[in-house]
Nucleic acid binder design. Structure first.
Length: 215
DNA sequence: AACTCGGGGCA
DNA sequence: TGCCCAGAGTT
């Protein structure tokens, strides 16, 4: 099966199979999404969802957060923060937003990646979710699913995966494909014990083929 | 590009 | 208990 055929089948699935589920789309502002995504790194969504309501009540905007003290921010996110780093990232990002971007979240990748706590993945999430741009944020879900169903072939780094996916997926479908890959990876094509019975892509899936052989 | 970081989830 | 995780930051 050619790579284009694999993509064609995946695209068909993308159109029909978005599951009903909580997504990053449930955010009140770009700033609050940014904070949530920064906190999400190395941490489960559940725990992030525990701390964000009180955090956003205290600091609903970049401006509000930028004037807070490190300790105050830290007190809100203790349970999802490693010693010292995330409160610093949040405060630093809030300050940079206020000082350099008029309190708004910028919409280009270079500006986003200058923010503390924001790497390539987080920056691409913002571009994709907030501005619907043709950005592919490669996290482990996207990486794993793409490898299994053959959209990538042995990509070694997230950046290589990102480039390969963007090469074959039509620009206007990239935000949807991104959304789909993440949800599919989270709820169906899980790292351990994936729900292959609920997946429409078993015909193109290397993982499924392997498991089938095992019996 | 490879390494570090470090609490949580899971076997 | 020990292994792996998921990203950002560092070298």
């Amino acid at each position: 099966m050619t790579i284009k055929e694999r993509y064609r089948r995946a695209m068909e699935w993308f159109q029909t199979a978005i599951p009903e589920a909580e997504t990053e789309l449930h955010y009140k502002s770009p700033f609050q999404l940014l904070v949530a995504v920064i906190l999400s790194a190395q941490c489960t969504d559940k725990r992030v969802n525990m701390v964000t309501p009180p955090l956003f009540e205290a600091y609903p905007t970049a401006e509000a957060m930028s004037t807070a003290s490190l300790d105050d921010i830290y007190s809100y996110i203790k349970s999802v923060s490693y010693p010292n780093n995330k409160a610093k990232s949040l405060l630093g990002a809030a300050k940079m937003l206020v000082e350099e971007y008029n309190g708004e979240v910028p919409s280009d990748i270079d500006s986003l990646m200058r923010l503390p706590g924001v790497g390539r993945k987080t920056a691409n999430v913002m571009l994709s979710v907030v501005w619907n741009k043709a950005a592919m944020a490669v996290d482990t879900h996207v990486f794993r699913v793409s490898e299994r169903i053959g959209l990538t072939t042995g990509s070694k780094t997230p950046l290589q995966t990102e480039k390969e996916l963007c090469r074959y997926i039509p620009e206007e479908l990239i935000p949807r494909a991104h959304h789909w890959l993440i949800l599919h990876g989270r709820y169906v094509c899980k790292a351990r014990r994936p729900d292959c019975l609920n997946c429409g892509l078993t015909q193109v899936c290397r993982y499924y083929m392997q498991e089938s052989k095992k019996g």
